[in-house]
Design a protein around this nucleic acid. Structure first.
Lengths: 339, 339
DNA sequence: CAACTTTAAGCAAGCGCTTGCACACATCAG
DNA sequence: CTGATGTGTGCAAGCGCTTGCTTAAAGTTG
C-alpha cells in the first residue's frame, strides 16, 4: 500500500480512503489509485485490516456433532454450498467448525469469539455448551440459528430460521389417514424436531377425532438400522398396523427393507411416509412419499438475514422465521382420489 | 495482554513470550502468567497475532464447482468432517471456499493468498484458474491436492493424495469377467478419474486376452438419469451384454432402475458393478457391488501431510500418495466361487 | 575477586492498515 | 476584501501482538 502511495504521489491515508470508497476523496484521485491497485494486483492484508477495524469479513459456520453420522453428510454439503453461494456475493469468507473441540473439550464458538476471528455466526446445532449464548451476546456478534432449535434456552430472544415440524408431521399423517390408514406406526426419536413431528401426528388424529395408535416407537438415532429393526423385532405390529410414518427417510428405507424381506407389499399392504425428502427418496424403489423441508431456502434466508445484521443492526424483535414443509407423494403412499 | 502484564508486574514482552512458551522465560514467571491468562479467560487477538507473525493458523479448503450437484453433497460432508477432525487436534481453523467466485469471476485461491488469510491449502478440485498454481508457488504456502488431479498441469511437481482408479476399474472388471461376463457395458465420463477407470477396464480385458466390448458409453455427468437413459435409450444393447460397469454408484442406480422396469433380473440375468461405495449402495435392493475408495484415509492423509508441511518445510521430492481402492461384493454381482 | 558467561526480562520498533484531527486551498456571500 | 464554509489531503497515533537487541542480575572460573 505504501508503494501505491508513492506511485500515486499521495499519502497512505489517501490510498486507504480511496480503496475504501471514502466520500471525502475526489473522484479523480480515487480512480487513479484504484487503477494502480488493479494494475499491480494489490489487495489488503486482511490481518492488518482486521486489526485496525476489528472486522474480519468472515462468518463462522458451526456444525453439530451429529455430522459424525454419514447420514448427515449430505445435509452438510447442501449447507456448505448454499452458505457459500450467498456469502460469496457479499465477499464474506466462511470459517467452519464444530460446536465443541473434541480434542481440547473447549467450546469452539467461545474460542472463535474470543480470538475475534468471526464477525457473525451461523449456528447449526441442537446443543450448546454452557456459556455459548452468553459469549455470543456479550461479544455483540450477530448470529442466526438454523435448522435446529435448542431444547431449553431463551428461544423467544434468539434469531432463527426453522421448519414447522408440527405441520410436517401433520401433513404426513393426514395423508395416510386420507388413504384409510387407522393404525399408523410412528417411528420417532427423542430430539426436538422429532417430538414436534410426533406432535403433528397427534394433531392429525385429534382433528379427525380418531383414536391415537398406542405403540409409538422411539428409535435411537433415526437410522436405517433403527427402521429395519423396528419392524423385524416387532412382528406383533405387523398384523395390526396399516401404515408407517418414519420420521426420517433413511429410517423409512430401513422399514421398506424389512417389509420386502417379510413379503409385505408397499403400498398395497402397507403405506409408508418418510421425512426429509433426501435425494434417494426418488431413486429407491418403490419411491418414497415423504415430507419435503425447504432446506435451501432455510439456509439462504439465514445467510441473508445474517448479512443484513452485519450491515445494519440487530433486529428488534429478534428474527424468527418458520418455513413450511410440504408433502411429496410418491409410490409408498401415492396421491390418490382421497387427497 | 497489557492487563496481564500489569497484574504480573512484568512487561508485555514477557507475557507474550510466556504464553508462547519461549525458552528464555523462567518456568516460574511463565506459569504464573499462564495462570493469570487462564483465570481471566484471556486469548490472543488473532488479527494482531497474524499481523505480527504472518501466520493465521487457518487453512483453506477449496471445493470444486461440482458441489453444485447434490449427488456430491455427501462427499463434501465427509470431507468437512474429516478435515476438521484432523485439524482440530492441531488447533487450526478451516476456511472454506469454492475455487472460483461465481459472482466476481475471480479465483478465490488467489484472493485468499493475496489477502494472506490462509497458511495452507487443501485443494479438492479438478480444474484450476489460470495463475492458481503460480500464485500458490510464489506465496510459498503449502498445499495438498486431494481426490482430484488436474488434467494438464505439472503433476510430477505437485503434492497430492489420489486413488488408483486404474486399479479400481480393473478390480471391477476382473470381478465381472470372473463371473463369466464377456460383454460388459462400461458407462464412463470424460473427466480424468473416469478415463482412468476405463483404462482399468481395458487392462482387465487385455490381461486375460479377452476382446474389448466396443460399445462404450460416455455419459454426460455420471448421474442417475444418465444411467437410466443409457439403458432405456439403447435397447439394442440388452440382448448383447451380460454386465454393466457403471463408474459411479448413482449411475448404477439408474441402470438398476431401468433394468427393473424392463424386467431384467439382477444379478440373475445381468451383473452390475458401481464405483464409490456410497452409503446407499448397501441400502438399495439389490445391494450394489461396487469399488470402495478409501476416502476418509485420503482426506486424513492429506490433512496430516499438510500439517507436517506447515510445521516443517516443503517435502522434496513432492508428496505424492496413491491409495488403493477395493471391491465390495454385494448382491448385484455377488462374490462367488469364481473369485 | 575481577573478568566473563549465562539467564531472565525489558525496550521499542514494527507488522499494514484506519481514522480523528489539523491543514491548505478554493469558493462564496456580505 | 474578509471571514465563513466546504473540499480534498496529510499527519500521526493507534489496533494488539512479536522480536532483535540491550541491560541487569546471577553464576562461573582461574
Amino acid at each position: 500500500m505504501k508503494d501505491l502511495a508513492r506511485m500515486a504521489g499521495t499519502s497512505l491515508s489517501t490510498v486507504s480512503r480511496s480503496l475504501n470508497d471514502h466520500p471525502a476523496i475526489s473522484r479523480q484521485t480515487r480512480e487513479h489509485i484504484k487503477d494502480l491497485a488493479q494494475r499491480y494486483g494489490f489487495d489488503f492484508n486482511m490481518s492488518a485490516k482486521s486489526l485496525a477495524t476489528k472486522k474480519n469479513s468472515t462468518v463462522g459456520l458451526i456444525f453439530p456433532e451429529s455430522l459424525d453420522n454419514p447420514d448427515n453428510f449430505s445435509f452438510a454439503g447442501m449447507l456448505l454450498r448454499n452458505v457459500r453461494a450467498v456469502l460469496e456475493e457479499v465477499e464474506l469468507d466462511t470459517l467452519i467448525s464444530f460446536s465443541r473441540n473434541d480434542y481440547t473439550g473447549e467450546s469452539n464458538i467461545q474460542r472463535l469469539l474470543r480470538q475475534g476471528k468471526v464477525d457473525g455466526l451461523l449456528l447449526v446445532q441442537p446443543h450448546f455448551e454452557p456459556g455459548d449464548f452468553e459469549a455470543i451476546r456479550s461479544s455483540g456478534v450477530p448470529y442466526v440459528l438454523l435448522h435446529f432449535l435448542p431444547e431449553a434456552l431463551p428461544v423467544h430472544e434468539v434469531n432463527y430460521v426453522y421448519v414447522d415440524h408440527v405441520l410436517g408431521g401433520k401433513l404426513a399423517t393426514e395423508h395416510l389417514i386420507a388413504h384409510g390408514a387407522r393404525k399408523i406406526l410412528c417411528i420417532t426419536e427423542r430430539e426436538r424436531q422429532f417430538r414436534e413431528r410426533t406432535e403433528g401426528y397427534r394433531l392429525a388424529h385429534k382433528e379427525r377425532a380418531l383414536p391415537l395408535y398406542e405403540h409409538m416407537i422411539h428409535s435411537r438415532d433415526a437410522s436405517f438400522e433403527d427402521g429395519y429393526r423396528t419392524i423385524m423385532e416387532n412382528p406383533q405390529y405387523l398384523d395390526e398396523i396399516d401404515a408407517v410414518f418414519a420420521q426420517a427417510d433413511v429410517t423409512a428405507f430401513g422399514v421398506l427393507s424389512a417389509f420386502r424381506e417379510l413379503g409385505v407389499r408397499v403400498p398395497e399392504d402397507m403405506l409408508v411416509v418418510g421425512y426429509d425428502d433426501i435425494r434417494m427418496a426418488t431413486i429407491i424403489h418403490p419411491s418414497l412419499t415423504t415430507v419435503h423441508q425447504p432446506q435451501e431456502d432455510l439456509v439462504r434466508h439465514a445467510c441473508k438475514r445474517l448479512v443484513e445484521m452485519l450491515h445494519g443492526e440487530e433486529p428488534t424483535p429478534p428474527y424468527q422465521e418458520t418455513l413450511k414443509p410440504w408433502l411429496v407423494c410418491r409410490a409408498t403412499a401415492p396421491a390418490g382420489a382421497a387427497d
